[in-house]
């Protein structure tokens, strides 16, 4: 299991290749990569703030819970902070499991929790200045299915 909270760009393809190569005994790997949208060109970028210390602990807790709930061979979470440009990867989740059902479910669980329970705050920057992204009720609602 690996959790990385970093400002640096990462290559989702290379990360997935390395993750898959390191997995033992899995029959399925699922991955998700979140990108900065350009919102039709109106967005010049994004600034992500986080809570150092709590972020790493919160994500580690989510991964632990995923491991307890599903049969996983491995899991990876990478999440960036700092300034990001449209088109860049913000974060990625990868899960490996003996069977695909567990890999899909655990990846979705991690995604839902990262969205509303990991202490990150997104600020969109554009021509008109910056605006904090508001949390969506649907994201909070999504946690209830777990």
């Amino acid at each position: 299991m690996r959790v990385a909270v970093q400002p640096a760009l990462f290559d989702p393809g290379a990360e997935l290749t390395a993750f898959t190569a390191g997995v033992r005994g899995a029959g399925a790997v699922v991955s998700f990569t979140g990108l900065v949208r350009d919102e039709g060109g109106s967005l010049s970028g994004m600034e992500i703030e986080h809570y150092p210390g709590m972020t790493e602990k919160a994500i580690a807790g989510m991964v632990e819970e995923a491991v307890a709930r599903w049969t996983l061979s491995d899991a990876l979470v990478i999440h960036r902070y700092g300034p990001l440009k449209p088109g860049e990867a913000i974060m990625m989740v990868a899960t490996a499991a003996p069977h695909r059902g567990d890999a899909f479910a655990a990846a979705e669980f991690l995604m839902d929790y990262l969205k509303s329970r990991a202490p990150f705050w997104k600020k969109e920057t554009g021509a008109g200045g910056g605006a904090w992204v508001a949390a969506k009720d649907a994201d909070e609602e999504a946690l209830k299915r777990w």
């Binding site: 979140g34 809570y51 709590m54 999440h79 913000i90 974060m91 995604m111 990262l114 969205k115 509303s116 329970r117 990991a118 202490p119 990150f120 705050w121 997104k122 904090w132 992204v133 508001a134 949390a135 994201d139 909070e140």
Partner: peptide, 10 residues
């Protein structure tokens, strides 16, 4: 103690 708005990760 930390105060913040609802989180917007992912």
């Amino acid at each position: 103690v930390a105060f913040f708005p609802p989180m917007t990760g992912g």
